[in-house]
Design a protein around this nucleic acid. Sequence first.
DNA 1: CGACGGATTGAAGCACCTCAACGGGAGTGG
DNA 2: CCACTCCCGTTGAGGTGCTTCAATCCGTCG
Lengths: 239, 239
Amino acid sequence: MLARPEPALRSLDPGHPCIGCGVRASAVCGALRPEALRDFRLSGTAVHYPAGATIVLDGDFAATVFSLTDGVLRLSKLLSDGRRQVTGFLFPGDFLGVTMEPEHNFTAEAVAPAILCRFSRARFEEFLDTDPGLKERLFDLAARDLADTRQHLVLLGQKTAAERVASFLISAAGRCPGGRHGDVHLPMSRLDIADYLGLRIETISRELTFLKTSGTVRITGRNSLRILDLDRLRSAAGQ
Amino acid sequence: MLARPEPALRSLDPGHPCIGCGVRASAVCGALRPEALRDFRLSGTAVHYPAGATIVLDGDFAATVFSLTDGVLRLSKLLSDGRRQVTGFLFPGDFLGVTMEPEHNFTAEAVAPAILCRFSRARFEEFLDTDPGLKERLFDLAARDLADTRQHLVLLGQKTAAERVASFLISAAGRCPGGRHGDVHLPMSRLDIADYLGLRIETISRELTFLKTSGTVRITGRNSLRILDLDRLRSAAGQ
DNA sequence: CGACGGATTGAAGCACCTCAACGGGAGTGG
DNA sequence: CCACTCCCGTTGAGGTGCTTCAATCCGTCG
């Protein structure tokens, strides 16, 4: 079960509802044959969520799974007293519910207005049985998710505030859409970043201004910055 | 792909090499039919490691996968300057290499003398294709692993030292073998615990003595303790 | 323009770390 | 059997990195 190459994207009927989907190649759907994709798409419906909306709640029965086609989601877990750990962010092409567990084990909320392709889980499982490639794709996604989460453990358990912020910017540059020429778009708030990195918003702010004054980055807006010195940022990230 | 009940363990030939394996029911092998199990077992060999031995290294090509039949393993990731994050511990019945990725993404070392059942990955993948139950079992294991790791994120990102130690003891009581009547066996060193919890050994020590003086636990040995007040420990764990 | 919410900056506090000394059980050699 | 040693764990005292609390800034929207 080696990571296999992206399946070639075959041509679709002009009228196919997935024809305009910008994430078809990278999303799980990309693993499907065109014929299967039609059935697949017909079994799912596009749903819109405004910024701040909750898509699934931690502990909810997982009656549905989603493919994110547009927007950004924040995944988080809450302690009883309100402390929140953001476990990750989802970007277009990402799948919500990879583990196919009976209950979701995190809360998913829209950071930016989001469009998702929703499937009933029962229906989705039928596709899993029909199309072996889809199952393998899902397994690969879970494996990658696990590797990313372990890296996140290292960050939270061992890294300093400066290293956490630098690491975050590097991974954001790689994952957020629009990461050309060192331009990084940060759709989430400082509080989201803080809860993701296990820090306070003031610390995020201080570390960002330090990176700014040291000439490592240029803050180009509330939700955007440009990496000026990637080498320095990498060494600041502590590996 | 709901978590399915343990497959009933069918009777084995008296001469079968797996007949005496104490973890057959709970390990991945439990998903196999007796006929398949025989072939399976013949393709794997039992290997012994002394305490402290390295089984796999982070980044190593994953030519083999393992099922742990006896002992305890420590999984960890290293930063370049030597800081170490222990991402988890493996106990008898656990599988090493669930994600079937081309490279291991953590180092696995024996905390206590360990016996593992080793399989070539290529051979193991053949079994995956033959026995659909095995593949599902592996997926379920990966899903549980991911859920555990996310819970660990919450611990490292949000919890205080006292909460981390209490949480650790509770989960150790559930996972370590021999956890009757509140007796908890801690096969790993204080340093291992510290690196698992993102703390220093001195802090572990201080929190344990606090739990002792508050009457929550009784330290019965260097590697063992007894939980006297589980309710108090639970509330100390912060959920 | 004024008000609001998110972000930044500053000053003081504290949780955990660092450094250092001590203790105690296991193994070894006499 | 005891004495020695080593290693791991514990305890203490002082330091620091991040937090907490509070004030200010700034872009957005009415």
